[in-house]
């Protein structure tokens, strides 16, 4: 479904992604794990067309989207929940959701998805008239995910949904991610919390300083002693 072929992305002169290739198949949860500064977020921003790769190719459903504009990419079905949530703090919860559906014209469908989001996260329904910035961290993460779902994505990119959240909230969010996936949305999940990510993923990639150093089925990666000591805290 999504294929990155040897992409190189730069910030000015900083070579952030150094020849990364990965593949996400329809219906999968694929996780990209790695430590701070490994290039995980940059990879997602490259897919979304915010930071363009200088070389390499990105294909989505066999179409080359390497140089496509962000709104075209969203229209094709790739939506990102960015790191740090980036909700619109002075728009209401409801307006935030509407912005997620910005490119859609089908009022009925939008209304339906709105209901679906409120089912998934009942707290958002209670807070629908509140400004996004007044929500707690966990609620903001829920809003960010709900907002992305409003675009009815085929592929959902999630950037560190567990960041800064209490363990119980993280559990909740990950449960929702599995539910979203089982209802047919393919997911590329970037995480520092490798433990959680590998538990729900089908496949995993390990990123270190802009390069993939390991890949395989999530279960195998969890058993790998190198991964265990470096990312799972098991000696």
């Amino acid at each position: 479904m999504l294929k990155l072929e040897d992409i190189h992305t730069y910030y000015g002169n900083i070579h952030a992604i150094k020849g990364l290739s990965l593949e996400v198949n329809l219906g999968e949860i694929v996780t990209l794990i790695g430590s701070n500064g490994a290039g995980k977020s940059t990879t997602l921003m490259s897919i979304s067309g915010i930071t363009r790769p200088r070389t390499g190719k990105i294909f989505f459903q066999d179409k080359d989207i390497t140089t496509a504009l962000t709104d075209t990419i969203v229209k094709m079905g790739i939506t990102q929940v960015p790191e740090g949530r980036m909700i619109f703090p002075r728009l209401t919860v409801y307006e935030n959701l509407l912005m997620g559906a910005y490119l859609r014209k089908d009022r009925k469908g939008i209304k339906m998805d709105e209901e679906h989001c409120f089912e998934l996260f009942p707290i958002l329904k209670e807070r629908r008239k509140q400004a996004g910035g007044t929500l707690s961290g966990g609620e903001q993460q829920m809003l960010a995910i709900a907002r992305a779902l409003m675009a009815r994505p085929k592929l959902l990119l999630l950037d560190e949904p567990s960041l800064g959240l209490a363990p119980i909230v993280v559990e909740n969010i990950f449960e929702v991610i599995t539910r979203i996936n089982s209802s047919g949305t393919t997911i590329l999940l970037v995480e520092q919390n490798a433990q959680m990510a590998l538990q729900i993923a089908h496949k995993g990639y390990v990123l270190e300083t802009g390069k993939i150093i390991m890949e395989g089925p999530a279960g195998e990666l969890m058993e790998n002693p190198k991964i265990q000591s470096a990312y799972l805290g098991i000696d």
Partner: peptide
Amino acid sequence: RALSQNRTSAALMGI
């Protein structure tokens, strides 16, 4: 208004 609050996020919404 969304754009004035977070440009990257607005772009990611397809705006």
